[in-house]
Nucleic acid binder design. Structure first.
Lengths: 340, 340
DNA sequence: GCAAATCTTTGAATCGTTTCATTGTTACGA
DNA sequence: TCGTAACAATGAAACGATTCAAAGATTTGC
């Protein structure tokens, strides 16, 4: 296959000037019907496809937006990505997706790549702390929005979800359904998300004088870690058991559920109510459909694109940090009569 | 922020010719140390970043590869993507990822976008059948490799997994562990993957004169669909139950497992052995760790990139269709003493 | 039928990089 | 000291699309 047709080839083939071909593509109204037909036919016959490189060289910027996430496999990000793509499409941009896989090196590669591509801007859920890498972007004037990470409004716009509020919601829901001896299950509180969710839960518990909250630290945030915690609970005396458990994510909750249902000693939700966090697909199809806290991922993605557009348009506008409040999803595991 | 620095600005700032700056970037050996230092300093001081558009305009092609998958949320594709990215990085290319979400329109958009970007080539797991869209790519000479879809070798190179072999492996394993009354659970056999896996299972069963295979059609391929099938089985007389169940995917298998373990009437694997397909993350953390068939996703992604490289280099070489054989993963649900 | 107004079309200049033939410099052996 | 390699640096041309001032064509109004 030889080199593909250029606008010049089209112009020759249709016996018009290159400017006319360009007009057909960009300002069809300026061109007479006759000419337009001839040009379109030529385009078709030659299989002409616009060369985006030439286009954006002239324009000085591309029509793409870079999006770097920590893990495309994580349903949370998958959903954010999808929403961002749709929102970008609405404003005529396309999203280039990069997966850093929690690796700072890969992240740096994508940042460089996207800068060379002269993306309109960057959405990024950064690996680790906000470092010089990002400050550099800021200095270079690359419009940037942080995703799922609160940022100093002096420096960046950002979108995030209020984990404290989520934790409050979950605990409040357990309290509202009459539970008083609550337990929080989560990995190390050095993970910010875990700490915030716990804090929110504690805030709710303080509102009820007769309520208590026990903190159970799990080995990681997996189903298996949850099962260990569950097994430990099953061995307790009945009187020492919590009557409501809030897990820092759904995987942990599913593990706890496995332990409790397997032994058939305790019933969910009659003896123990259980609520998770994230509302993953599996939550609804657990043995006992799992109540959970759903994060507004679509809003996150959409808003990130919108904030980016603001940054692009008003170069020197103040940055904005938008925080969303998550949503309670009640299912059977916390005592709804029957659920979706 | 004004327009970013160009190679010309760097040249001025370092008092050299533009060609020299270019040489520093592309052929450092051709440039004396003194000049190189000066140029590098200028680059640093001006915060110069190569403009990829201009670069690839000159080069005639980009250093990116387009990858369009049916669903980034699907762990199968996530894993393929990751492997493809790594393999591409090794040869100095970057992957642009598009998610068609099983939507032909979105797919078409990405195909157009990637063509305008003049990607080196395209990896695509196409929506529906291989249609004119793809034939058009072929005619245009865009190197293309189909992923997870067998293709006419006259037309395309492709990488795929042998589902018939996978079905055989699963059924053969059940037979090898002494089961004789097998059941296959799957959605409609109009889905090619389901049909192939069933066919492979049937092939294995035919090898044992005293073995039988019952086909149970589920309503879709979800956990809930699996649970319906499971509930139906639990109501049968013990004598009419299968002693080995092969599910067309892990979600179905997890649903079946829920039904069986919840009632505590039958034990897995003692009464009924259970095996799924795909080896999703959840398989290992099920109540009874689930045996499954693992697809070689890393090999798929890597090989796809390699085949694409072949296509790019040898324009008129014959295409190749590479088929991988999946792998049996034995866990507790089919009677391993104890598993990972 | 003619001037003015409107609509079409033209094509050179431009974007930032790479390429490469040419020119300038240095080093070395005779 | 000179001639010649070997090495460095130069800068114009090219890539393909868009822009825009200018020219050309057509229509309108009188």
């Amino acid at each position: 296959m030889n080199r593909s047709a250029s606008i010049k080839d089209v112009a020759n083939h249709a016996s018009v000037a290159v400017g006319t071909v360009s007009n057909v593509l960009n300002y069809p109204d300026r061109v007479s019907q006759r000419t337009k037909d001839r040009v379109l036919r030529a385009i078709d016959e030659l299989g002409f496809v616009r060369n985006d490189a030439a286009r954006q060289l002239r324009a000085g910027h591309s029509r793409t937006i870079g999006l770097i996430v920590l893990d495309v496999g994580n349903p949370f990000f998958t959903s954010v990505v999808r929403a961002a793509e749709d929102a970008a499409a609405l404003q005529g941009s396309a999203v280039l997706l990069g997966d850093s896989g929690h690796d700072a090196g890969r992240e740096a590669n994508y940042i460089d790549l996207f800068q060379e591509q002269r993306v309109q801007g960057l959405l990024i859920s950064p690996v680790g702390d906000v470092t010089e890498r990002l400050d550099l972007l800021r200095e270079r004037g690359v419009p940037t929005v942080l995703v799922d990470r609160l940022a100093d409004e002096e420096k960046f716009s950002s979108v995030a979800v209020d984990d404290d509020a989520g934790g409050y919601l979950a605990a409040r829901h357990l309290l509202d359904t009459g539970r008083r001896r609550l337990a929080f299950v989560g990995g190390s509180t050095s993970i910010r998300q875990v700490a915030d969710r716990l804090q929110g839960a504690q805030r709710a518990v303080k509102e009820e004088p007769d309520a208590t909250l026990e903190v159970l630290v799990s080995e990681g945030q997996t189903v298996l870690a949850g099962r260990s915690v569950g097994n430990m609970l099953v061995e307790r005396d009945r009187g020492e058991l919590p009557d409501g458990i809030f897990c820092a994510n759904d995987l942990l909750a599913l593990g706890v559920m496995q332990s409790l249902t397997m032994t058939h000693t305790y019933r969910i939700p009659e003896d123990i109510a259980l609520i998770g966090y994230d509302d993953i697909d599996f939550a609804v199809s657990a043995v006992v459909p799992l109540s959970s806290i759903r994060q507004p991922t679509e809003a996150l993605g959409r808003t990130a694109i919108e904030l980016l557009a603001e940054e692009v348009e008003a170069q020197h506008a103040r940055h904005r940090a938008v925080v969303f409040t998550p949503e309670l999803v009640v299912r059977q595991s916390t005592g709804a009569p029957s659920a979706d």
